[in-house]
Computed example of a mutant assay.
Amino acid sequence: MLCPLLAVVGCREEKAAEPLQSLKPAPLPSLATGGSRASEDGGPVARGDVPESAPVYGEALPSNALRLSLAGEQVRLGGETFEPSRSASIARLAERVKGHEVVLVPDADTFLAQVSELLAMLRDSAETVWLAHPDAPVAYPLVLRDEDGFRVWLAEVAPGKLRIIQRADGFELSTSVGKLPGPDANGPSVPVREGRQDLATLRHGLGLLKGRFKQSEDICLVPSFGTEVSQAARALGAVYTAPGEPLFDTLCLVFPTPPRVRDGG
């Protein structure tokens, strides 16, 4: 009696479970091959010793922003000079910038570690913080995160969690599923060439990551704390593929958690 009954009601075919291999994330693209960057006609570009120059893109400089000029451990606003490492001085500067757009204008010799107190104050007081490019009239709007804030961001459940780790030997492009492979498996994704940042290849690598993580809307630049602020600004330019056209909507800059601010003015 069982078989005729099955013939009437039909048999439900059970679908075999997908193999565990199919649950693995898709592999990351690679910058390991020498001709990984496409030329304008679609053919491969051979890697030379000297990196190609990359056009500088970004946003137009904000016209109404307060201009903060960096000079080591000092910062100038108009005719005034402030020392953010001193509590009275940074308190006065905080009052000046509160609720305003500000644009940071780096010199050649100011390092990220020297501006940690300034960046922490701007994160809490300014309406919007921009970083100007040292070589072109463009700037980049930033979300500022110290080390603790960066760890909180990393812990969020979201695809990608893309980071540009800026090191002395190049750029490491890191994701939630590993780093983008470069020419040396033990080195950065985009090594320096002849002592210079390879911004053209960095831009290409970021384009590969955007293609892999299409839903990712933000990216963090994590410079070593001995990096010049001007070099960090140049790296941010690689996120743009044309004027006003970033690959990612939100640019985050990670800075060192500042030491305790000294007393005095």
Results as ranks from 00 to 15, higher is better:
residue 234 R to S: 04
residue 113 A to N: 06
residue 242 A to C: 04
residue 121 M to E: 03
residue 89 S to C: 03
residue 234 R to Q: 12
residue 239 V to Y: 05
residue 27 P to M: 13
residue 110 T to L: 10
residue 243 P to L: 14
residue 6 L to Q: 08
residue 243 P to D: 15
residue 155 A to G: 07
residue 177 V to D: 08
residue 211 G to A: 13
residue 17 A to C: 03
residue 140 Y to N: 04
residue 221 L to N: 05
residue 146 D to G: 06
residue 134 P to H: 14
residue 131 L to E: 05
residue 158 A to R: 14
residue 251 L to K: 01
residue 150 F to K: 09
residue 224 S to P: 00
residue 115 V to D: 01
residue 233 A to Q: 04
residue 248 F to R: 03
residue 178 G to F: 07
residue 22 S to D: 08
residue 233 A to S: 10
residue 27 P to R: 12
residue 230 S to F: 03
residue 252 C to R: 14
residue 241 T to K: 11
residue 183 P to R: 13
residue 211 G to C: 07
residue 190 V to M: 07
residue 69 S to Q: 12
residue 150 F to M: 12
residue 177 V to A: 09
residue 61 L to G: 00
residue 159 P to F: 09
residue 265 G to F: 05
residue 96 R to H: 07
residue 39 S to Q: 05
residue 231 Q to V: 11
residue 68 L to Y: 02
residue 44 P to K: 13
residue 203 R to P: 00
residue 186 N to T: 15
residue 186 N to F: 08
residue 145 R to L: 15
residue 30 S to W: 07
residue 133 H to G: 04
residue 24 K to E: 08
residue 49 D to V: 14
residue 181 P to A: 15
residue 161 K to M: 07
residue 64 N to M: 07
residue 235 A to W: 01
residue 232 A to S: 13
residue 241 T to S: 15
residue 151 R to S: 09
residue 257 T to V: 10
residue 163 R to T: 15
residue 250 T to A: 10
residue 209 L to V: 14
residue 93 L to I: 11
residue 257 T to G: 04
residue 215 Q to K: 14
residue 94 A to G: 12
residue 79 G to E: 13
residue 226 G to E: 10
residue 33 T to Y: 09
